[in-house]
């Protein structure tokens, strides 16, 4: 399976990364090299094998459904590039 330029552009948009034309071509070659490398998994017979969901034999923990944290609005917005009145500011999203 080989990846072409339109696919690289589509994936870049899905990943929300702007690419220059030069970068797109470079990435096309690199992605194909990596996908070529992982292709060898095709040799492995996985009939009847369950996909791994947890690497250690443990149940996902549950805790009491109660409030354990909060009241940290200042802390939460402290690192925001743009904020006002405890809100994150973003460019206009509705016309």
């Amino acid at each position: 399976m080989s990846v072409d330029l339109p696919t690289v552009k589509r994936v870049a948009h899905l990943a929300r990364i702007k690419l220059s034309d030069e970068e797109t071509e470079g990435l096309r070659e690199e992605l194909n090299a990596i996908l070529g490398f992982v292709e060898q998994l095709g040799e492995v017979d996985v009939t009847g094998v369950e996909p791994m969901t947890s690497v250690t034999a443990m149940r996902l923990k549950a805790r009491q459904d109660e409030v354990t944290d909060g009241g940290k609005v200042d802390d939460i917005v402290a690192n925001a590039p743009a904020s006002e009145d405890h809100y994150f500011l973003v460019p206009k999203v509705v016309e």
Partner: peptide
């Protein structure tokens, strides 16, 4: 890709 890799991971373990 992903599902296949997670199956291979089971075999590695």
């Amino acid at each position: 890709y992903y599902l296949k890799a997670q199956k291979v991971r089971t075999l590695i373990k």
